[in-house]
Design a protein around this nucleic acid. Sequence first.
DNA 1: TATCTATTTGGCAAAATAGCCAAATAGCCA
DNA 2: TGGCTATTTGGCTATTTTGCCAAATAGATA
Lengths: 110, 110
Amino acid sequence: MANRVNTKHEAWAKVIKAIAHPSRLFIIEELDKGEQCVNDLTAMIGSDASTVSKHLSVLKNAGLVMVEKRGNSIFYSLRVPCIMQFIGCVEDVLSSNAKEHMEILKCCKK
Amino acid sequence: MANRVNTKHEAWAKVIKAIAHPSRLFIIEELDKGEQCVNDLTAMIGSDASTVSKHLSVLKNAGLVMVEKRGNSIFYSLRVPCIMQFIGCVEDVLSSNAKEHMEILKCCKK
DNA sequence: TATCTATTTGGCAAAATAGCCAAATAGCCA
DNA sequence: TGGCTATTTGGCTATTTTGCCAAATAGATA
């Protein structure tokens, strides 16, 4: 009956939740190539600037990105390099899913 | 103005969202040690059996776990081994956050 | 100083998520 | 068969998350 779900799992979930959004994943992918300012990210994403700003603040609160003011803009960059590797693992899951669907199709054709 | 957030990012987000919950992270951690049945997981987590069952179905829909009926129980196991490595990355983020907080504290003491 | 650009914040409504209870299902065992 | 045990499903409410708009803020520049 004990509840073994604890602070550790909550801390993990907080960080992972911050990653778990299409636009934020795009941002992470983009920042992995190098820093970007809000304005350019907004243009690439195509939603309202305030929306992109909020996505960035979610990433910042989770400790995933760093901020640097320079000139007229604010530049964001990845704080921890391993995130894209993690996404590699997610790709493994997806290709594994795809493979399984193929198997099921093959099976039905017979 | 183009929207470069695409299907790929949505697929990634779907998988990552499935991971992003304290109880589900606990389940993943537990399954990483070996398969478990719903009943035992329910006892460890301490919420309603229906809740745990729903968490498991979220993980299953994302392709993260496998299911096997045996005897009176249904056993779940991890389908892709790399997930716990990913959590290693999350730990990096958290310890990096902690380190930064320490720095800020040190700075204020002076 | 006035204005313009870049970014963030507040507020709100719509959508998604979580977790409980009750009820349905499935298979085992007496 | 009838009663158990294990698991899932449906339904409902509370909470959280999204994303837009309008407005505020911060700096740079004319």
